[in-house]
Amino acid sequence: MAGSPWSRSPEYNAAPRRPGLQDQRSSTLVDPIETFDDFLPEALRRRSPAPLVDIGANLTHASFARDLEAVLARARAANVTTLILTGTDREHAEQAVELARRLPGLYATAGVHPHDASRWDAALERAMGELHRQPEVVAVGECGLDFNRNFSTPAEQERAFEAQLGLAVESGKPLFLHERDAGRRMREMLHAWRDDLTAAVVHCFTADRATLHGYLDLDLHIGLTGWLCDERRGHHLRELVGEIPLARLMVETDCPYLLPRHLPAKLKGRRHEPALLPWIVREIAHWRGIAELELARATTTTARAFFRLPADQTQHDAQPEEQ
């Protein structure tokens, strides 16, 4: 895959996304005081030694509608200072932009996920082009190819992806990519466009060594999630994580999905959230054999340059904590 695997085992999901169905969102948020302290057990409250950027947070998912303000407060407490909200279709991209406009530290992407590629038409292309002109949108996507489930046919996926490659060139913004079981075709399509694209990240990478190095040969960035923390299927990533140049690596939760399985305490509802990103960073640092502080600083520097984010004063003000 290398993108969010929408089909996951039940214990991994908060509420699995179904193709063709839109999340129902409430406009009412509860008082964050009610949920700030009681959602995360004390054993799961971990603060990063340096500010972090979560490059893939699905905060427009319906499971965040009730307590979004508390989720953001917990993220800040964990030193996750910047969130890139993933826009997987027009509705969720517009919601992400609206959140980014009114809440500090939030930015958005705008694209059409390959599962929804069958919906691509001229009107949707115009709408995406308009979204990409918004200053809150920092990347084109989530877009790409997913030949694992084929909720849209491969031909429909390639058509929508090709169009979004064109939109990325037109806007000059980087790509936020999804790929699952389609590495060879993805590389072929990206190779044809690579000279005209500014940058691209394969988010939630989970593929094999050959696919990884194929992406690195195209000068792509790699996003890693809590998949690495899964003892059932993340072993191969532990072997590969050291092969990703530090300047090409970024970190993400892909919340509410992919809750890390190595957490030291149970989490009610099993909904993943940005405050847990430091646990993922800690695991990646362990398998790379470097300090958590070094990884946190490097991935944040890379993410800020990749998405062209303004300087974050918290990076200068924060005092690193002891390892």
Rank of each mutant, 00 (worst) to 15 (best):
E231M: 14
D67L: 08
R126T: 14
L44Q: 09
E273G: 08
Q323R: 15
P174Q: 01
L40D: 03
Q134Y: 04
L293Q: 11
A303F: 07
F176K: 01
R159V: 07
G105Y: 02
D37K: 12
S26F: 10
W120V: 09
T86A: 04
E136M: 04
G223N: 06
C143A: 07
D38I: 15
W193T: 12
P19W: 11
R126I: 13
W6K: 15
L145K: 04
L83W: 05
G56Y: 01
T211L: 00
V80I: 05
C229P: 05
G242I: 10
V140G: 03
V140Q: 03
P154R: 01
G144E: 00
E69M: 10
F161G: 01
S171R: 04
P274L: 00
L246H: 05
E231S: 15
E188P: 05
A155Y: 00
S118F: 15
V97C: 04
N150A: 08
L216Y: 08
D181V: 08
F176D: 01
E69N: 12
E292Q: 15
P310S: 06
T253K: 00
D312H: 11
A123V: 14
T60C: 09
M189V: 13
T153D: 07
R194I: 12
W287C: 09
H262E: 11
L258R: 02
L83C: 05
R194C: 10
E231T: 14
E42C: 11
E162F: 05
D230K: 08
A265E: 06
R76S: 10
E11S: 14
A117P: 10
E142Q: 07
Y257T: 04
L177D: 01
R297H: 03
G172N: 04
